[in-house]
Design a protein around this nucleic acid. Structure first.
Length: 321
DNA sequence: AACCCCCTCAACCGCACGTTA
DNA sequence: ATAACGTGCGGTTGAGGGGGT
């Protein structure tokens, strides 16, 4: 059994926990501690840094505000389009979406979606409804997303956008700088996938698992990004969508296996990605090329189904599974 | 100037899951 | 096997700011 907590001291500690907005002094304390000591157990960090905050609060503050690789400022139009596109594939899986937008947090994206994008989608949906009442209602959300944010031409450029994001010169992107620094500063190779699950324990501050909530996803992203930077012959550098469920499902009711499949798929990303995406590549290209018909015809987003199923088919064929 | 409304975003909450003892 | 604990995630809330009247 773990050492039980809940004694008088802990009770007092709990009662003295601060809530609400962080003061600059608190930020400085946390920042200094993280720079000096790196990431560890968050409740220890809170205690050792002299913060009257719970570990959870410290973690959130670090991830969403203090970590050095965060991109500040408004979302670019490319990022907007990417978010819409990824949301159409992943639903409200903000952490997974964030994993594909270097320097952005899930919270940031979620807020952006709920405030800005949702509203625009609503408007565009109502516009498209008024313009074309004969459209199939089943396509409303995604159709609205596509209509509202992407011209057909733009939707074709989604792939190029991914490539831009993944192939940017490290010198032009703070996130990529950080990723590059991972290679330089990582104290030990993270070759063991099991390490990815240990929430950055014993990992220096610049480890990819510090970049966001999901160490697995982020590390996977980092690996894929890093791995593809040097692959001149592979222009299909899309970070894999680990899991592409039916987004209509309530995320609260997600199958417990989903998480497993995320982990499993992450673990095998590097191995099956080429195989899987070489297969899917043609499909995506075909889809992209046919996007005019796809978008205008009110077709449902079959991409979700074939992509996920294809991925899992590929995955199931992999020996380690 | 004062008030109201709306929007943005930081932070909290509850839950699920993994890890540890 | 189990309970306690740590972490991550998505939903929600509320403070604060800006714009309109």
């Amino acid at each position: 059994m773990r050492k039980p907590i809940g004694g008088q001291d802990d009770l007092i500690l709990t009662m003295k926990m601060r809530k609400g907005l962080w003061s600059p002094e608190e930020d400085e304390k946390l920042m200094n501690y993280m720079i000096t000591n790196g990431q560890g157990c968050w409740s220890d960090i809170a205690r050792n840094a002299g913060l009257q905050r719970c570990g959870k609060s410290c973690r959130l503050r670090w991830i969403n505000y203090l970590r050095p690789d965060l991109k500040r400022g408004a979302f670019s139009s490319q990022e907007e389009e990417l978010i819409v596109h990824l949301h159409s594939l992943l639903g409200n899986r903000w952490s997974q979406i964030a994993a594909r937008l270097p320097g952005r947090t899930d919270n940031e994206i979620k807020n952006f979606w709920n405030s800005t994008i949702k509203k625009r989608l609503k408007n565009s949906a109502s516009n498209s409804t008024s313009l074309n009442t004969s459209n199939d209602s089943s396509s409303s959300d995604h159709q609205g997303a596509m209509d509202g944010f992407m011209s057909i031409h733009d939707s074709r450029n989604i792939m190029a956008m991914y490539m831009d994001a993944t192939r940017q010169s490290p010198s032009s992107s703070s996130a990529m700088q950080a990723m590059t620094m991972n290679h330089m500063m990582e104290p030990m190779p993270l070759s063991d996938s099991d390490d990815h699950m240990h929430h950055g324990r014993n990992i220096a501050i610049m480890d990819a698992s510090c970049y966001g909530g999901n160490g697995v996803s982020y590390h996977g992203c980092y690996e894929i990004f890093g791995g593809n930077l040097g692959l001149a012959d592979d222009i299909f550098s899309i970070p894999p969508l680990e899991n592409i469920p039916n987004h209509n499902q309530d995320t609260k009711t997600e199958n417990p296996d989903d998480r497993n499949s995320l982990i499993v798929t992450n673990n095998i990303n590097n191995v099956i990605m080429n195989q899987c995406y070489n297969n899917n590549k043609q499909k995506v290209q075909a889809l992209s090329a046919g996007s005019e018909n796809f978008l205008e015809g009110g077709g449902d987003l079959k991409v979700e189904e074939w992509d996920f199923e294809e991925l899992m088919r590929e995955a199931s064929a992999f020996p380690s599974l």
